[in-house]
Design a protein around this nucleic acid. Structure first.
Lengths: 198, 198
DNA sequence: TGGGAAGTTGACCAGTTGGTTAAGTTGGCG
DNA sequence: CGCCAACTTAACCAACTGGTCAACTTCCCA
């Protein structure tokens, strides 16, 4: 019943892109609407606030991204190989973003988290949720690697947090320096953390 | 000659605090002025723009912070001890900030970098400069540790970048989760990265 | 002591902010 | 076909944005 529209999807996509290329604070509702080709009245027909759009579009983007991650971290793939592939995909994604926007953009979840976590509770809660889920991919890969005797990691959650913090730190440096080469050392650094010689 | 004033210092301090507790984008000139007890006309007597105040106050804060770091990383102190002390000071500072503001604030340089590095060139350049300087503390400590045979680190700059990225990642997680306990594992994680058993 | 540089003040600006509203248009479905 | 829910539109809002300015006060120094 009633009319149909893809304005909601267009708004979510515009918001995601603007947050990633810029920041939440400097992204105005007018900008979002312009990029999405949607009038402001329609914006507030679909979303009750700018924050709600952000939460919804971040959530939607993560749900999409998880599909790829589920493949990357498939139990069929050797455990450490999963992690190296994940790093390669980080790199590929950042390359694409640099080609498209002329800038290395890093991880939108962390950039947004750094910006809003003291001021926007709803957004912060969503970001926490996503980050906590992400760590589980590392965690289960490391647990598998430990049980296969590939690495020595009796405390895989702790080790996963180290790898995670390290990877996010690198991604952030890549954004700040607008330089993909920071990502080159990701695997080597992780090997060092995992205590793998080579 | 003429009148003297500490309004400039008050503005810098207000800006630093507001950036740290919130973000650059959500900090308005009016807010800064109110907190500093300075009228807007005076603001623009001392600074040509909001960006310039941010650059100046960040720079000033770093110059102050370096004094402490120079002591922490004194060549007199055993090299790895310097790093552990630095971590302890991170923790102490975050504890103080949490007591004062009710929130874990993380590293203002990185939070700011995540937010503005795609949009504000002057600010980004300043942040890059500071971060590059910070890494050197780790770097020289690691070089010393290597030459003293305490660790195996032929490529100390690369290792310093790993430790740095890791530490910043943890600080960011502490901010996002508003939880100091993320910092507890800092030394243990760094030991693992450095390949130290214990 | 007094000239003048340095600092202060509050009124002012145009543009933008997130958000509202009421009247209109569309098209799925009974 | 025609109803009516779903969607669109443009005009509107008060508060706030970063920034300006000319008149005024202070107080250092010659």
């Amino acid at each position: 019943m009633g009319r149909t529209s893809d304005a909601k999807e267009r708004l979510m996509e515009a918001m995601s892109e603007l947050i990633w290329t810029g920041s939440y604070g400097t992204t105005s509702v007018d900008q979002i609407c312009e990029r999405a080709g949607v009038k402001k009245g329609s914006f507030y027909h679909f979303f009750e606030s700018k924050t709600e759009l952000a939460v919804t579009s971040i959530d939607h983007g993560w749900t999409e991204h998880r599909k790829k991650l589920d493949q990357t971290f498939s139990p069929v793939i050797p455990p450490l190989e999963r992690i190296w592939r994940c790093f390669q995909e980080f790199r590929q994604e950042q390359e694409e973003m640099k080609a498209k926007h002329g800038r290395v953009l890093g991880c939108p979840i962390h950039s947004l988290g750094a910006e809003v976590s003291t001021t926007d509770d709803k957004l912060r809660d969503k970001l926490q949720e996503i980050l906590a889920q992400f760590i589980r991919y590392y965690e289960s890969a490391l647990r598998d690697a430990h049980f296969q005797g590939i690495i020595d990691a009796p405390d895989s959650p702790a080790l996963a947090r180290i790898i995670f913090a390290y990877g996010e730190g690198l991604l952030l440096h890549a954004r700040i320096w607008n330089d993909l080469s920071h990502l080159n050392e990701m695997e080597a650094g992780a090997r060092r953390i995992l205590g793998i010689k080579d």
